[in-house]
């Protein structure tokens, strides 16, 4: 069986996994409840959990932020591969 993370069709990524409180916090009233809300990341508040595909040391894997519970995590967003800074 082909590894779904290596197949032509990209696997559906789960994306954000929010608690009901987080989902409500980001809801400004304009979005349907099941849509991804606006920014909810705040210092001093739980980091929004998520699940997605990743490349790591030659393999593809699925990673959840909550896999790192109990550890310090540095989450770095950047504009894109092959950019210059």
């Amino acid at each position: 069986m082909t590894d779904p993370l290596s197949s032509c069709a990209r696997p559906p990524t789960v994306g954000p996994i929010l608690s009901p409180e987080q989902a409500a916090a980001g809801d400004d009233g304009s979005a349907a409840p099941q849509e991804v809300p606006r920014m909810i990341a705040r210092v001093g508040k739980p980091a929004p959990d998520f699940e997605t595909t990743a490349y790591h040391q030659g393999t593809f894997k699925t990673i959840r932020l909550s896999d790192y519970a109990g550890k310090w995590v540095l989450l770095c967003f950047y504009p894109g591969d092959f950019t210059f800074v």
Binding site: M39, I40, P48, F50, G80
Partner: peptide, 22 residues
Amino acid sequence: IGTVYGVYDEDAGVDIRGRFLI
């Protein structure tokens, strides 16, 4: 994911530079 962290630029379609210490 970038949207809930406030770093997704809808016009450019990319996540801008942002780091979060958890």
